[in-house]
Design a protein around this nucleic acid. Structure first.
Lengths: 204, 204
DNA sequence: GTCTATAAATTGATAGAC
DNA sequence: GTCTATCAATTTATAGAC
């Protein structure tokens, strides 16, 4: 790095373009030329900002992580009740049905693809996106009074259900499935957490 | 095709090798040379059996579908009770924990990768593997007395949960997660289907 | 049918002018 | 810092001898 920040905005633009294309087409399918064109930057220039395609992917993963953390921070500000927060985690994919149907979960599909590149550190990096979501969900269950193990298992269960639903809806290209199943998950979540309202308020 | 069957067994062997490598490394990462070496067949010979890499992938998908159908047929023979049949669907991944942790679900991960190749018929072909499982699960729920819509939604929910669990366990490389969450799914399945035993026996 | 050698195309990465 | 031109490696696919 020879610069303190991205003065021209090209670096940021390259990350945005790569993020978009990796999501739509996958990491392997997307060429650096594709990214360069999408970002309106000459191909050769890409290597000024990112020495390798892999380092570009790492920047993309970091960008995803930042977005996720911002989202969770916002949800925490907007809702004190951990049940409502978890509800948003479940129904969030409904805010972008079309892209979920077309390309699946932005984080999940990236983990899936990079997870098979064994000789690469990208797999471990990407998996942190999933870990981030589980950890956050676990925190919410803990605020409802669940202990360490209980909260962990419920968080894993919830994230697995949402991920599996997005995957199925994407694979079968069914917006209907996405809506129906996410609502089922949400309904069960609401039912299961009905008796933990007091614990929350006491914790406040 | 100039032959009625695979007399030398090389065609079958190539499919087996490709199936294995696509699962472990992914479709894009696996080269025809990799497949040829794994099958102990010279590279140039691959094109005698499969004109393109895509046609090899189609054969792999067909082989997966055949395996799935055989498995379901066997489960139907071994158990009359649809609840037990569905139980096997849930716990089956525990019979091959290591490969699931290492590479995820053989069908799910294939669907995920091929699903992003838009200009290819492979996506639609692969998605039939998932559809097959959902359809089979739906049949079992129907035999328990559930109507068309109910059985469909419960089948989708079950498959989504199992797929999501395999995906999470694979991404986080956690055999513990796989076992814990699959057992949770099975437990809930058993609880929810407790009151539908009569309906089954009457149907027999 | 089987195999070697190679063509043809793609693509990540680099060199070097400006 | 920016961009053009090009290298080097990979990989799908084909040609043609045996």
């Amino acid at each position: 790095m020879t610069r303190a920040y991205d003065s021209s905005g090209k670096r940021t633009e390259l990350i945005r373009a790569a993020k978009h294309l990796f999501y739509r087409q996958g990491y392997r399918t997307t060429t650096l030329d594709n990214v360069a064109q999408e970002a309106a930057v000459p191909l050769g220039n890409v290597h000024y900002y990112f020495q390798t395609k892999q380092s570009l992917a790492e920047a993309v993963i970091a960008s995803h992580a930042e977005t996720l953390q911002n989202t969770y921070a916002r949800w925490e500000q907007q809702n004190d009740d951990p049940r409502l927060r978890l509800g948003r985690l479940v129904t969030a994919p409904l805010d972008s049905v079309e892209s979920v149907i077309r390309s699946g979960c932005p984080h999940g599909s990236l983990c899936q693809e990079l997870g098979k590149l064994e000789d690469s550190p990208l797999a471990a990096h990407a998996s942190q996106l999933l870990a981030l979501s589980i950890d956050w969900a676990q925190k919410q269950f803990q605020r409802m009074g669940a202990d360490e193990r209980q909260s962990r298992e419920r968080a894993e269960e919830l994230v697995a259900a949402v991920q599996g639903t997005m995957f199925l809806a994407h694979t079968l290209r069914s917006p209907q499935l996405l809506a129906t199943q996410l609502n089922r998950i949400k309904k069960r979540l609401d039912e299961e957490t009905l008796n933990s309202v007091e614990g929350v308020k006491a914790d406040e």
